[in-house]
Write a protein that binds this DNA or RNA. Sequence first.
DNA 1: AACTCGTGGGG
DNA 2: TCCCCAAGAGT
Length: 366
Amino acid sequence: MIEWDAATIKDFQTTLLAWFDEEGRDLPWRHDHEPYHVWVSEIMLQQTQVQTVIPYYQRFMALFPTIADLAAAPESQLLKAWEGLGYYSRVRNMQRCAKQLLTDYDGQWPHTAATLTDLIGIGPYTAGAIASIAFNEPVPAVDGNAYRVFSRLLKIDADIAKPQTRALFEQVISRIIPHDRPGDFNQAIMDLGSSYMTARQPDSAHSPVKRFNQAYLDGDELAYPVKTKKPRPKPIAYVAVLAQMQDHWLMTQRPSNGMLANLWTVPLIPIEELDLDEDYQPADLVAAVETYFKQEYRLTLTAHYLDKRPVTHTFTHQKWTIQGVGGEVMLGDLAYFAGKAVTTAERQQLPMPKVQEKIFTRYLSD
DNA sequence: AACTCGTGGGG
DNA sequence: TCCCCAAGAGT
């Protein structure tokens, strides 16, 4: 790791901000510095690319223009607005945060990063982003871009997968961030990280700060940042039951904790829970699902195998393979069933994860 | 500290 | 197909 003297720091600040003034992106959430706007955009941008976020941000702001609107909205409406964006606890935590602000903070945002982290869903990165952009506090906002950019500029070889590494980057960046334009500086680092200093195919030869980029000058840019890799997703097999009760579809709401919390899907049964042999046949699967419906839901299902290839859906830690089974449920009470029967029109109003959309597309289309 | 939590894009 | 990555936070 190398260190910069005061003159180099000043030179870097001036060069970066001059570039940002000319080439910084015009994004919907950059039209003002309203903390609400900064906050919503930062939450959406967590682990999510800018191009994905833009239409969601536009729709979200039209639906929930103020913190009070967000706090008062039914959760189902929030999840519907978030549908397809992933990491759904983000929007549920945003509503908790909105209520927290109204009740505990008299609707007034705290102005410092240190106090912003007391709010639900706001961690060290988001606190730094809001504090610097909305309130002009000279604090770093250490995200993936900051790790990548500064690890290359200064050849920092600490493993960014380790939690303790954050403190090192915060210390380093704190000495470099300009006190007059901290928000612009942090956003400039992000723009730099998504343009010239990308992860896979950087273009540092044309970067405005290439003369500060020690890794590039040494020809080993791609060695940074150092990051230990994660385990591959664990395979899990499911049966999806596309069951109708007269002209209604059976839909279940997932538990309020864990994956896809509170979202709606057709009944998804881990095949491991169906007492089956190693080499079961389609007919065995159908029979096991009928038994499962009887035992778990007290529902009489007449099922049939849907002879199309399974849906596969890969999450960060799990790879689902989902075989479809169709069926008709006898009219009966749904007291033991964690869901409801809905028409096709009603179904489309429910917040559903992408994997559910794939299941419908595979098994309901001709 | 290590694990959980989605989705889309690119090589 | 598989891998990694993308403006992370909660537990």
